[in-house]
Design a protein around this nucleic acid. Structure first.
Lengths: 125, 125
DNA sequence: TTAGGTGCAAAACCTTTGCCATCCC
DNA sequence: GGGATGGCAAAGGTTTTGCACCTAA
């Protein structure tokens, strides 16, 4: 991967914040230094930096909205090969919300837990 | 919220699966019963059903991709008012992956944990 | 009767891609 | 020099919306 000022600037912006920004936010920040950078370049470099492992994409749900008729709080498993989502019937840990509240000082009302790995079907193939 | 055959059909499809389908998948299923239903109607009803609490949207990350220069495994907090994402420095629980693997029979390599609630800034306002 | 829902199509939105010029190695 | 990258704009895919017609209550 070649070093370019665009890539450096994007990485710098991302390292200078803990706000987990969107591509568009990064774009607007970087434009302060490189006014004519294009949004396409930002997307391309974010993708490249993800692939090289220099940054992470926060993408727990995949690109598309998904819906569930089951309304009780429960955990999920996402297969990294086929992208299917399964229910995981482990007991929901209420205690951890309290610990997070204590740590952050925020009101914590619930949490979302999604396991990652390979489902049985994809293990076989 | 008015009861219509379109809404009923969508709900029935959703209740008949545990696959956490996308809007488009629901659309194609419902078309088997109501061939001329429109995709817009599916989206509208999914939205309505979410609002009324009859279904849930699996949307842990919000609609947009977000990026993070921090690469170690850590937990997040999402404010339900301002939609900002913060880091939560609780120790990552490796044991729970093993329990999920036992429960499901899947290979579990990691998990994503996101707390929900109201951040300090939004509590004040 | 009428407020709310439907179908259709267009628009909006985010993200990716093709093309050619440019730049890094 | 030559392949990787950038800028620009167009295309792609998902979701929302405007509008005229319909329908459940």
């Amino acid at each position: 991967m070649r070093r370019t000022k665009q890539k450096e600037a994007i990485l710098e912006v991302l390292r200078g914040t803990t706000s987990h920004p969107t591509a568009d936010w990064v774009y607007n920040e970087v434009r302060k230094d490189i006014p004519n950078i294009s949004l396409g370049t930002v997307y391309r470099n974010l993708r490249l930096l993800c692939q090289s492992g220099e940054i992470l994409e926060l993408d727990p749900c995949g690109a598309l909205s998904r819906f569930d008729a089951r309304r009780d709080n429960h955990y999920h498993f996402r297969c990294e090969k086929c992208d299917r989502v399964f229910d995981v019937d482990l007991p929901v840990d209420g205690e951890i919300d309290r610990r997070a509240a204590q740590k952050t000082g925020f009101e914590v009302s619930s949490h979302w837990l999604e396991f990652r790995g390979v489902c049985r079907n994809c293990q076989e193939s």
